Computed example of a mutant assay.
Amino acid sequence: MNRILLYVHYNKSDDLSSHVLYQLEKLSPLFSRILLISNSCLSTEHLKSLRKIGINEVVQRENIGYDFAAWRDGMNYIGFNSLVDYDSVTLMNDTCIGPLWDLKEYFEKFEKQVDIDFWGMTNFRKTKYFKEHLQSYFVSYSRQVVSSKVFQKFWTSIRDYENIRSVIDRYETRFTGILTKSGFKYGVVFNTINEDAGNLIHPDFSYYRPEEILNQQVPFIKVKVFQVNSEQTNYIKSQINNLTDFPMSVLNEQLISNVYCITDATVENKDFISRIKKLVRRIFRK
């Protein structure tokens, strides 16, 4: 299959974490072409690290409009005349850890289904706040979808909103409905529509029910899952270690980054920061 990946490096800083490099290296064999769109300026060292794993196309842009504006700019860079030559166009951002399982079988499964035009990892049921939609951190669109006027009109009309809620309300939660109203059908690795959401404020299984994400073998788990509380972090870490081959060194480094990025932003004493980092590393190695 002739596939292209438009991958958004979402970090506001110039940090390119090992989980991104690992992710791109694992994804690379599945795609004929990968475009990394960075919402921050990457150092020469980071660009060299990307080239070592075969990522040679990088668009660096100002951190405006979040991931939807970044994907728009990526499509403009490629051009719709070229995008429609690919069997599928996959949009992804770096807000998740993985792949926890080999992605090849997921692509093959959905690409064999003639009644599936686009697919993703998890969906979000309709509520009084949101429409039913595929969550945008990973979605793959077939050539039929990408060639359609409705797809191209949507992406060429993306604006640079400064508020993430505006991006979610106007783009993420609406695009699935726009496509399905045009006759396209979607598939999902973990269909949460009829799952018991219990007393969840929002039926976001990717965030509130990470244990179900693993039980359903969704190959990506959101980074924000590890920012809730230490008990959940330790449990999910142990489950990933037991159920998958994902390198714990990569996961631990990401968890450390989540902690000490706060200290870097708020503390000027470099010696103190260094001690904090060493302490955090010892904690996460346990």
Rank of each mutant, 00 (worst) to 15 (best):
Q254L: 14
V167K: 06
C261L: 11
Y7G: 06
D15H: 06
V188C: 06
Q152P: 02
I164H: 05
Y106C: 00
R281H: 05
S206F: 06
I168R: 00
V20N: 08
G187A: 01
G198E: 09
Y22C: 05
R72L: 01
Q232R: 14
S206Q: 09
T95E: 06
E108Q: 13
F284E: 14
M121N: 00
R143M: 04
L50T: 11
K237D: 09
Q216F: 04
L83K: 04
I262K: 08
L6Q: 00
T266Y: 14
K185I: 01
I4S: 09
Y260T: 09
P247S: 07
V228R: 15
E253H: 05
C261E: 13
S238F: 05
N194G: 02
C41E: 15
Q216N: 14
S166V: 10
R61T: 09
Y171R: 00
Y86V: 09
Q135T: 02
V280H: 01
V228P: 00
R61P: 02
I64C: 12
S142D: 05
S157F: 00
N252C: 11
Y86N: 03
F107A: 02
V59T: 04
D160H: 06
F184E: 03
Y22F: 15
S230P: 08
T244E: 09
F118K: 08
F124R: 12
M248G: 11
S28C: 12
T263L: 08
V20A: 07
G187F: 03
S142V: 02
W119C: 02
L6V: 15
I201G: 03
P99S: 08
L42H: 04
T95D: 10
R275W: 07
S40L: 02
K222T: 03
D169I: 08
S274K: 13
Q23M: 13
V84E: 10
I240W: 03
R282S: 11
L100M: 07
S40Y: 04
F272G: 03
D14Y: 08
Y161G: 03
V250R: 11
L47M: 13
I276S: 06
N56T: 13
E62A: 12
R51V: 08
F118E: 08
V146W: 05
L50F: 08
F272K: 10
G198N: 07
P29S: 09
I276M: 13
Y260N: 13
M92H: 01
D196Q: 04
H19Y: 15
G74T: 10
E132W: 10
F118A: 01
L36K: 07
Y161F: 14
N2C: 05
L91H: 07
I53D: 09
F118D: 03
L251Y: 09
I178E: 12
V267I: 15
S13H: 12
K52G: 03
F154W: 14
S140P: 07
T263H: 08
